[in-house]
């Protein structure tokens, strides 16, 4: 299966995001991911792979600047361990003005 991080074509070529300075996504308790969560489903159900397991630090790495606000993560986490709130007004993904991208 293709990992779109490595694939030549990435959907990020045609997603427009205005990231806020601070993250709108947080892991509530990092120990829960390490000790209680076997499959770490956030690393695959997130459509833009915001979450990745970092082997070195043994914790979930959150790349909030990739978030397209699908809202799946807080509900999909089996341990209710993801704190997600809306980016500030005007920030985050912008599906309008697609033409500005080309």
């Amino acid at each position: 299966m293709s990992n779109f991080l490595k694939a030549e074509e990435s959907p990020f070529d045609y997603i427009k995001i205005k990231p806020d300075d601070e993250s709108h996504i947080d892991i509530k308790n990092r120990k829960t991911c390490l000790k209680a969560c076997e499959n770490k489903p956030c690393t695959y159900y997130c459509p833009t792979r915001v979450f990745a397991w970092d082997e070195e630090s043994n914790q979930i790495k959150v790349s909030y600047t990739r978030c397209i606000e699908c809202l799946a993560c807080p509900y999909g986490c089996p341990h209710n361990n993801i704190e997600w709130h809306f980016p500030k007004g005007g920030y985050g993904v912008n599906y309008s003005d697609q033409e500005d991208l080309s």
Partner: peptide
Amino acid sequence: YLNQINSKGVSPYQLLTR
């Protein structure tokens, strides 16, 4: 369904690619 995507280990982007 999100719970099935989770339990079956499916990545939505890969699903679309496939």
